[in-house]
Amino acid sequence: MTIYIFLFAAALVGLLAVAVLGRLVAGPTIADRAVALDTMNTLVVGLMMILAAVYDSVVMVDIAIVYAGLSFVGTMFIARFIEGEV
């Protein structure tokens, strides 16, 4: 029964991650796009956690941890690029 709540939540979070794409395409500056990408990464980490609970696999939580770290590195790199220091 609780599984269905998680499946519903996963579907909604996935929809939100797609909805953020509008700002990613339309953003007037690069910084706006970086913000949208950062938001999307956070939502994807949450989605991975929910799916890990649904499919009952610990490996997916590990992937979520690594994804959070790598998205942070990506965000820092984009920030350095905007500053013009790369």
Binding site: T29, A31, D38, F72, A79
Partner: peptide, 15 residues
Amino acid sequence: NATGAHAIARAAHRS
């Protein structure tokens, strides 16, 4: 997340 937000804000102001 907190550190990434700080980095984006600083980069946006400097650019």
